[in-house]
């Protein structure tokens, strides 16, 4: 029977998932292989009742991840990851066990906080369409400097809590990722909040999330 895979954790971790409902109310089951524990539910799913089944399924998936994340470090699968049967998943875990165990050990007590920085006027139609190419590039460079400057101040403000920091430009701003200890979530969030944000910029602080941006070593 096809299975929907949620995430992988260390098999040695004590994780309570027996009463956890998965996507469409499916029972969450665990599969252990090579020191890893994988959380899955059966597929196909029951017929959806929600008028927006994809959104509801994604939210169910998210709830499962967050419940497990609250107990242990996880490597999430992208939704939806469906395998034809448990054997395929076992084969996958066997092939990747060494790497995943290393990652999970490294991220054992870590979570990921995120800050999205954007311009308040990002949603408005771009006025620079009538600009020359040079002025467009100057404006873009200026905005990038503003974004990076605020990111640096956020990083500095929470620096004592941050183990690793990454930034990624998005279409309308800058996405920042901070790897922190589980015990520092509130302190880190408070440090971000205390940073003065220029009126032309907005920030959105979210987390804790699984430390997905820090799975790969640099």
């Amino acid at each position: 029977m096809p299975v929907l895979a949620y995430c992988v954790a260390e098999a040695a971790c004590e994780i309570h998932s027996r009463l956890l409902a998965g996507v469409s109310g499916a029972e969450i089951e665990t599969l252990e292989e090579s020191g890893l524990r994988c959380f899955v539910s059966s597929y196909p799913l029951k017929p959806p009742t929600d008028p927006d089944p994809v959104r509801e399924a994604a939210l169910d998936f998210h709830r499962v991840l967050q419940t497990i994340l609250s107990q242990a470090a996880i490597i999430p699968f992208r939704f939806p990851t469906i395998l034809s049967d448990s054997k395929e998943l076992v084969n996958f875990l066997q092939e990747n066990a060494s790497n995943y165990l290393d990652v999970l050990s490294r991220l054992r007590n870590k979570v990921q906080m995120e800050v999205r920085i954007a311009f308040v006027d990002a949603a408005k139609p771009p006025a620079e369409q009538q600009d020359s190419g040079a002025s467009y590039l100057r404006r873009k460079q200026s905005r990038s400097i503003d974004l990076r400057s605020l990111a640096q101040r956020l990083r500095t403000a929470a620096g004592q809590h941050i183990d690793w920091w990454k930034e990624r430009e998005t279409g309308d701003g800058l996405q920042c990722y901070a790897l922190i200890d589980r015990g520092d979530i509130d302190n880190c969030r408070q440090s971000f909040r205390e940073v003065s944000v220029p009126p032309e910029l907005t920030i959105r602080i979210t987390g804790p999330w699984p430390a997905g941006q820090f799975v790969e070593k640099e």
Binding site: V8, R78, T81
Partner: peptide, 9 residues
Amino acid sequence: HVLNSGVVI
């Protein structure tokens, strides 16, 4: 997050 983050098989 659920649609764009995570391991891809």
